[in-house]
Simulated assay, not measured.
Amino acid sequence: MDSVKKNPSSSSATEKLTKILRNREYVKRSTERKKAYYEHLESENKKLKIIIANADLIHKQLLNVHLQLTPEQNQFLINLKNDTFKQETELTKQFTQIQSTLSTRLVGEALRQTGDDTYINNYMSEMHISMGNLRAMEEIMQKADGLRAITLDKIHNRFIKKQFAMALLAISAYLNRITTLSYMWISRPKS
């Protein structure tokens, strides 16, 4: 009977070794799955970039065919796009800076609350400054709305009515395609 009994330390060591080997195999398979998934995502990302590039190209060719732009009108659109982009970038920069300042002030003030008269005076001063920042943010939003209106007005004045209407339809179709691509990407099957 003694020969039938196994050595307890040998059995325990064998079980540990088996468990370690199973864990290594699991980690290896898991790593391979993650690598395959990452490669799949990279592939899908490349496909989407190609689709978007093609959509941009088609959009420009829709635009040029349907609008029948003259070279001067085409150059006008390029210049308008560049000018508008610069202005939008500047407005976004200003808005972000004010928003950051406002957040920092409000969080900083909340951390300094003491309850005495000094706090109340500081609070009123900070509130006044914060209200000024909010007014500045509102002015930036109004400037952005004005920029959109001015841009559309410039296009309207430069093109005949049919071209302007076709441009608005082309822009709408382009935005719908981009939205559809976004929804397709979000709702794609997760493997």
Score class of each variant (00 low, 15 high):
52 I>R: 03
33 R>W: 05
81 K>C: 09
38 Y>D: 09
78 I>W: 04
64 N>A: 12
70 T>S: 11
64 N>Y: 12
28 K>M: 06
52 I>P: 05
65 V>L: 07
72 E>I: 01
48 L>F: 14
80 L>K: 01
53 A>H: 10
21 L>D: 01
42 E>P: 08
64 N>L: 14
72 E>R: 05
38 Y>S: 08
38 Y>A: 12
58 I>T: 08
42 E>M: 08
13 A>L: 14
50 I>S: 15
18 T>M: 10
51 I>W: 03
65 V>A: 03
19 K>P: 00
23 N>W: 05
24 R>Q: 03
73 Q>I: 02
13 A>Y: 07
38 Y>V: 14
37 Y>K: 04
64 N>H: 11
73 Q>M: 03
68 Q>H: 06
63 L>I: 11
79 N>Y: 11
19 K>C: 05
64 N>K: 14
36 A>V: 12
51 I>C: 04
34 K>N: 04
72 E>T: 01
54 N>C: 05
43 S>F: 05
35 K>F: 12
81 K>R: 10
12 S>M: 13
40 H>A: 09
75 Q>R: 08
13 A>K: 08
66 H>G: 04
12 S>A: 15
31 T>V: 14
28 K>Q: 06
61 Q>T: 12
65 V>P: 00
28 K>W: 03
46 K>M: 12
25 E>W: 03
33 R>I: 11
17 L>D: 02
